[in-house]
Amino acid sequence: MKRFGPRLFLHIALLIGGIIWIYPFIWMISASLKKNFELFNSGLSIIPKEAQWGNYVRAWEEANFSGYFFNTLIITVFTVLIVLILCALTGYALARVDFPGRKVFIFLITATMFIPKGYTIIPIYMIIKNLGLLNTLGGVILAESSSAHVLFILLFMAYFSKLPKELEESAVMDGAGFLRTFWTIMLPLSKPIIATVAIMQFIWTWNSFFIPLIFTLNKPELRTLAVGMYSFVGEHSVDWVGMAAGATISLLPVIIIFIVFQRFFIEGVSGSVKG
């Protein structure tokens, strides 16, 4: 009871700080519902006189944010799937089988995180180009899934190595092979890690800018939301409320995903400090 006063004060301070903290997003959503002239003449008022849903229609249809949205969605979903498959398989093999070369493999993937490297995106760009995948969604997906995912592999590995040996043995008794044991028994048990990896990769890929920018330079129709937004500012720099609508379309999905699944995301991020 004694500390109720200071604690209340702290709550108020943090709450005000928090609102200022996310004020740019509040301003963005408010601007997306205003008229262009209203944006400059209404002072600090957050609430628009009349919600201008037309801004969203204009961004979605005329500025092609619908196309950008689906490009981003396709790239993100496929990247998440590829990364999940690669990391779950690798983590499982490393955790459950003591094969020759296992330690070398773990050493190599961790070592590449720490050795000095140059501008590695140029060789990756050349590989994608030589595969004939430049300016295709496939090329962007491949480049997005290309990093070594050391954290994710280690997460899967740590989880799979904690599962009891008896699970596997009883599966073998029942006549299940390696693949079936993995697919029907072990993989379903790793749902928490699948969720963590999927959410983290989803947010990273959705927010990615550099890779889609350089891999879709000559194909405007393949742009993602971030790249589309960047070029939109160049082309329609007067339509600020349309821009705000586009920005809201781009950010809302990832904000919602984060708020709903934040437990998994925070766990993954915390893991990189503890590990």
């Binding site: 690669l86 990391c87 690798t90 499982y92 140029i122 060789p123 590989i127």
Partner: peptide, 24 residues
Amino acid sequence: WAYVFIFPQLLFFIVFTIYPIIMS
């Protein structure tokens, strides 16, 4: 089976991590 399981990641790793580091 373990080799089969790490093969895709290993391929990705060689093509998209080792090779780019050398070529950079």
